[in-house]
Nucleic acid binder design. Structure first.
Lengths: 192, 192
DNA sequence: CAACATCCGTAGTGATCGCTACAGAAAGAG
DNA sequence: CTCTTTCTGTAGCGATCACTACGGATGTTG
């Protein structure tokens, strides 16, 4: 029933494919570049992963899981402002990490608009919770703020790919935070 | 000394090339797609424009001139806040104009980072003038604010290409405006 | 008019694209 | 061991890539 086992580690090869697609995007990545990066031959790639589109689907799944985990960790912080600050800071750091390709696959790849919307939905939910919690003014448009944050992060990805330094990208993050409304005054604190 | 004149209008063909590159980017645009859009044959294209890269250079020149004209018009407004508001509003409108390709060629094409820096420099200059004029607080980091604005506009381009409505993209623009610091209090106005 | 310069379309260059037919190698099942 | 099953690499499929050689068409110039 069983035949010859595959001679490479599927997970390792997939990780190499993630890196390659991350660096050069879907259209910019050729099968020959993939097999070189993955250390396998074309028939092995097609046997193990289907075709280029299916392989990219698995790559996107891995990448999105990693990204959404970071988003969720940030969203777990007690206030929207803290969550957004953490998320923007993470974004700036990851996008300029010299150990990985610059920028973000999820934010830049045209065909991953569904994954981008998943991020946006999480942000909308978190902001609405912030409104309910009282740490965000009730007149804030959660959808607009979430779209804005996705736009800024996408812009940070582009800046990183243009060669902006980590400090420049962090400066964008800090500036964007000013667009997150300050919490409405809670019970007046004692004067200093 | 003169031979057969060319049978097509160079400017019209260039405009068609602008639209094609705008829609599908440099790498995503093939010569066959270009000649189809321009209504000419490959030898005519190569005779009139050199090669693909040179044609794209002319396309970028045309596109950047148009874009920078809009930027300069916005920058001519009396305050940084008005200039930024105008620029973001223009951006939202142009990026979602159903009469042209979605998004922005200048902001999305990887090889146009030089043109993006030209936009950024104009923004830095305008913000520094705003600081000198007193309509922007002196502690504002002009470079960071300019990078932020470029990032937001790039994000708006991506959102438009993802299919966001004109209203959604405009909402991003309005939200981003909140990151532009309010002018420092001028001579105290009479109480209402 | 003839001579010349330039452009036109056809047709095809070698290279690379995504993908696969094929035959041999390497494992478990009997 | 043999048989079966699956993976392996080589080698090559048709399509498309950017680009061009070539010969005929179409102008201006003398």
């Amino acid at each position: 029933m069983a035949g010859r086992p595959r001679s490479f580690d599927r997970g390792t090869a997939l990780a190499a494919a993630v890196e390659q697609f991350w660096r050069t995007g879907y259209e910019g990545t050729s099968i020959s570049a993939l097999v070189r990066a993955m250390g396998i031959t074309p028939p092995s790639l097609y046997a193990a992963f289907g075709d280029k589109a299916q392989l990219f689907g698995e790559v996107a799944e891995v990448y999105a899981a990693r990204t959404l985990e970071g988003v969720d960790q940030a969203c777990a912080l007690p206030t929207v402002r803290e969550a957004v600050a953490r998320m923007l800071d993470d974004t700036a750091r990851v996008h300029t990490d010299p150990g990985t390709p610059l920028g973000c696959l999820l934010l830049t790849e045209p065909r991953l608009d569904g994954q981008r919307d998943a991020v946006r939905r999480r942000l909308v939910d978190r902001i609405e919770r912030g409104i309910a919690d009282g740490d965000v003014p009730a007149d804030v448009d959660a959808g607009a703020l979430a779209s804005f944050l996705v736009a800024v992060m996408r812009g940070m990805s582009g800046a990183a790919r243009d060669g902006a330094s980590a400090e420049e990208v962090h400066a964008v993050a800090r500036t964007a935070l000013a667009a997150v409304p300050a919490p409405p005054a809670p019970p007046a604190p004692p004067a200093p």
